[in-house]
Structure formats: structure tokens, C-alpha cells
Design a protein around this nucleic acid. Sequence first.
DNA 1: AATTGGCACTCTGCCCTGCACAGTGCCAGC
DNA 2: GCTGGCACTGTGCAGGGCAGAGTGCCAATT
Lengths: 364, 364
Amino acid sequence: MVDKLSENLSERAEALLRSLVQLYIDGGSPVGSRTLAREAGLEVSPATVRNVMSDLEELGYIASPHTSSGRIPTQAGYRFFVDSMLRVEPLNNDAFGQLEHEFEGRADPQQLLERATNLVSQVTSFAGIVTVPRDQDVRFRQIEFLDLSENRVLAILVTEDGRVQNRVIAVERKFSPSELVEAANFFNHKYRGRSLAEVRHVLLTEMARDNEQMGTAVRTAASVARGLFDDDEEGAENADVGDVVLSGEQNLLDVPDLAELDTLRDLFTAFKAKHDLLELLDKSLKADGVSIYIGEESGYKGLNNVSVVTAPYTVDGNCLGVLGVIGPTRMAYSEVIPIVDATARLLGSALSLTGDSHSLLTGE
Amino acid sequence: MVDKLSENLSERAEALLRSLVQLYIDGGSPVGSRTLAREAGLEVSPATVRNVMSDLEELGYIASPHTSSGRIPTQAGYRFFVDSMLRVEPLNNDAFGQLEHEFEGRADPQQLLERATNLVSQVTSFAGIVTVPRDQDVRFRQIEFLDLSENRVLAILVTEDGRVQNRVIAVERKFSPSELVEAANFFNHKYRGRSLAEVRHVLLTEMARDNEQMGTAVRTAASVARGLFDDDEEGAENADVGDVVLSGEQNLLDVPDLAELDTLRDLFTAFKAKHDLLELLDKSLKADGVSIYIGEESGYKGLNNVSVVTAPYTVDGNCLGVLGVIGPTRMAYSEVIPIVDATARLLGSALSLTGDSHSLLTGE
DNA sequence: AATTGGCACTCTGCCCTGCACAGTGCCAGC
DNA sequence: GCTGGCACTGTGCAGGGCAGAGTGCCAATT
């Protein structure tokens, strides 16, 4: 049923561990042998349970806050618990329908992301988080150049998912409007539908190759594009590093497990910085289904006392980003996991509708 | 020296009240007659001070948390204190230079706003806040239309302050690229340099007047523009309601006066909602210098336990927005006020440089 | 009449104690 | 290997004692 753990743990020990974690998640207070014996469903006495608990403690799955109190799960305990139930039943239909309902109505991609985070944050009462699709994973649809002033050109980039980005580019010389139009046409014909990463790659190679033989349009395009993509390298603080949308952070202020101000400060500082969050979420971008980071597993300071449950969302089979929930380590995983999973799916399909040019902003 | 309060309060009572508030701000604990007598600089005995304090309590300026402890200022007490020292000496030159230093280096307007909030939040250790200039207060520089698909046009609006906005407009029919270019030219010639509110007004009037006699370009422009400005009316949730940039919220988690979770939750909920904040800040947009809202004075639930110190920032004499600090009611106003004041000025002048097209993004 | 010192009173915060409760660890018996 | 029993230990809570800080009032002083 489970991995290598079964080598170490008897069937009974596993069952007790699971029960213990479940009881602790439900109740929030350390669980003792008596309670566990009663609730676990096994026909054993508290004394026996004590022996098993002693083993489990030795193995690092549970711990007692002080000499004589019940046990609480350690990080490893949660991990075991979560792993043993990851094949959780999908959300029941009613609940799914409710979530689905929330996605109805017109919305642009940004709004959809916000709606999705709000949704998971409200439903779980924790904080919702979602990564904004990164430029590189997204396909180029159209670009236009606008003469701003002497040596600045405004590039407007429209991607297949319907998002629009601006970038001001410093260029060496003034380009006439018609030059800019030509350059834009060149781009639009040549690169439409290819990913931004690809566009960039091709562009840089071609530019390096033969600067001489190119026509004016191409040369203009290349010249302008240099500024367009150069930014990405140095300006690491810039748009292209990706972004996350957070919501419901204030819910975490009400979570008793996080009542300590130090914890909260670290957490909110991490929220503000966003960088670590992004890195963490990026890791689960490649994962197929739900990923779970328990406490310090995430490796980020501010997140020591919380767990992060994430699921990637996809449009047409491409992983665009990750949706997740940040809550206390003691959270009802069996409820949160299906919610995150379902919302990520719904977000994906809502986005794929929007990406279709006919439906964008028309509400159809 | 002061207003009508002098009718009620003797010189001595005022001095004691000021000292009391100052002592409480510095120390954080209720101040008793003994301490106050010692620190106030007046040659009076604690017993005398007790009598005066009794009067002040009667008048509602101070209160005792419980029968036998020192007094703390009430909201009215803070208000008196703040009013009596609003003509605070400007920031000393060193400090001003330091702040100034932080604004150096290239930055676009959005970055400047963020830098300014970060700055006040770091310097004060409270939360910084700044309103993003509202479209209406800002002057039109340039517009361009881009054909997106069948019945959607992307409008790119560049304002004098160097910001760029996109808006997707649903239009009745397809417009050819040349039509769109013509329409844009029409806009750019006719409206450059006028405020968006003005543009809008003129546009709507003209459109209503004579739809017939207009040339094609004008008609196209009008048709497209209808979508552009219609949005503003209904889509109240949209860009035009203004926005605020917040930073350093997590600093408030460390403020002992705000240690209660209820308080914090309300506060952070207000931060997330932003709407109330915006409304509050808008009020001080018209004020000439620093405005201060103490506790419940603001009238917004989440802000009951904090004070807001704001100052508008101006570019070329136009108030574009408001910069402020949100901190505990018990804050060192005499330090915060000059900081907010100075930062708002610096932000204004930094923005005015950026608005100049030559310097935008070139760092000169 | 204003100011002052003195005095009784009160509330807080802290530490200590005692006590019920919950749960463990271990041992001896089955 | 499981179980019941028993001694032990830590927590949480209520109560009591005590020092500290500060008030309110009164009578004396200037």
C-alpha cells in the first residue's frame, strides 16, 4: 500500500499513526493513548497503544510537547499521513459544481487568476496563491511598436492567452513610424504562435548571424528587439521573473496554530517578498498533480510553520502556472487537496476559453 | 497660540497635556502625576499635577485605564497634541539628504511610487502607503489603436507622466489598420496635453453633437473611443477608481500597541480591500500639507486602532496623489510628520523628472 | 485661593502554593 | 505479545500574599 515505510511500521502502527494525525488535525490538542485507543477503531488497550506510540516517537513520526502529555505529529508524521492518502477521492459533484459556478461570467486572464485565489482562500479559510503565467511559457501572438520620443520605443506584446504587456525600449536612433510598422509586421508574420522563449532564441541567433544581408525591416526589428529581450537578462527584478497573486492572507491571522507574532511576521514578510514563494511554486510546476510542502520541507524561512498545497494548472496541455493554498501545517489535507486540485483544473479550463480570441472579454 | 482650546485650558494644563502625551508616546506606559511633575519642566508638585490631570480627564483629553494607574491620552488628547505641533520644523538637512539619496537612479513612475512607500515604511517602521495617480488627474500624451481580432481593439494610452495603459475595447465592426492609425492621429493632435477628464468630456459632447458631419477618421475615433470611456462608468471595479501601493505592512505585526489579533485582522483586511484606504486618502488629496487621522477619526472600521499621516504629492503644482504612513495611534508624530512631508515632496519632484520625456528610463 | 505634603486606598503584576487532570513509563501477570 | 495497575510528572487554574505605582482627598501652608 505504501512505500518503504511499511518495512518499518506494522499495519497497526500505521493505522494508529494515521488516526493520531487525523485526531490531531481535527482537535488541535495532543492526543493521548486513551483517546487514540478509543478512536482508532482497533480493539486494543491504551497500554498497547502507548507501546506503539513509544515506537512511533522513536522513529520520529510523533513527539510529545512535554513529559506527560499526548503526542502530536512531527513533520515526518504529517508527511506519512499525507503520502498515505494522496490518492484522495476527487471532489464530490456538488462541491465541484459550486466551484465551477464561481468561474462563470466574463473575466480577463488576470481576473481569473484573482478569482481563483480568492476562491481557494475563501473555501479553505487559508491564504490562496497562484503564479501568473510566465512569459516564456506563453505563445506570441502579436507585437506593435510605438514611437514615444527621441530614443524610446514602446513595445506592446500580445500573447496567445490574451494578456498584454508593455515595455519601453531604449534604442540607438529614432525610427520612423513606417519603419516601426514594418518591423512589427515582420515579427507578426514570422513568430506568431511560437513561444516567447523560442522567439527570443531564434531572434538572438539570427541577429548574430548575418547583420548585413538583412532588409531594412528586419534590421529595424532586430535593432528594436535587442532592447526588448536584453532587458530579460539584466533586469532580473523585472516582469519576466514571474509574479504571484496572493489573497486571503488575513485569514491566517485567525488560525490558532499561527498565533505567534514572530511566526506571522516571518510569514507576511515572505508574502511581501514573493520571491521565495515563486521559487517554491516553480518547483511544483513540473509535478503532475497535487504537491504538498510541509513546514520546513519548503526550505524557506518564512514558511517554517505552514504547509503549502499546490497543483499546476494547464491550458491545452501546457502547464502555465501553479495554484495553491498556504495554511497551517495542521490543516485538513483531505479537504484542501481536492479543492486545490479542482480549482486548478477549473482555472485551466477557464483560461483556455479566454485564450480563444473570440471569447476574450465578450463573455461568450 | 492655539485655537479655542485655550479658552478651556490654562497655559499650564496645555503644557502638562503636551508633556503627558509626549511621555506616553515615548514610554508606552500610563504616566502618573509624579513622573509628569518631574518631566514637564514646570516647578510644581505631583499633587498639583494630580489636580490638573483630574481636570484634563474631565475634559476628555486623558483617561486612566483603571482606578489607580497613570493616565493615557484619549483620541482628543492626541488630536490636541498633534494640532499644537503641526507647524513642526522641517526635516533637518542630513535626513533630507538621505531620503533624497534613495530617490536617485533610474526608475519609472510605478517604481518611484513603490520606492517612496518602501522608504517611508522603512524609515518609520510602520506601513507605507501611496495612491497611484488617477487617470483623470493626468494628462494625455498619446494613444494608439491595435487591431486584435474581429471586434476587439487594443488601445494603448500613454500619459504625460510616462505611464502606459492598455485597454481592450469591444467595437461594433472591424476597423482596418489604416482607419485605426488615422483615428489615433486625430486623437494625438487634438488632445495632447489635456487632462483625461477633459478629453473624455470633450469627446462625449462632440460625439453627441454632430455625428453626421464628421470625417471618417473622426467617426472611427469616436466609435472606438466610446468603448474606451464607457468602461469607466460601469466598470467601477476597474482601473479608473484608482489604486494604492502599500508596503511594510508586516512592520505593524511588531508594534506592541497592535498586538491583538483582532485588531490586526481588521487592519490587514482593510489593507487587502484597499477601497476604504483609497477613500480616506482621497480626502487628504485636497489638503495643502500633512493630514492626520487619529484612530476612529478616519471613520473606517479596520483603522480604529491606528493613525494615518498623509501628505499629497504634486507635479508641476498638480496634486497627483497622496503618500502616507499607517502606524499605531501612539506614534512619534513629530518624527513621522516631517518624514512623510519630505518624502511626498521628493516623490513629486522625482515624478516630475520622469514625466519629462527625455529623462524617462534613461537615468539622466 | 492656589499649592503642597501626607495618608489611606486601590489596582496591577508577580510569585508561590495547592490541586485536579491527563497522560506517560514501567512492571508484573496472563 | 497484550493487558491492567501504579507511581510519577507536567499542565492549567485558582487563590493568597506582597511590593509597587498612583490616585483622591484633606488639612496645613503660603
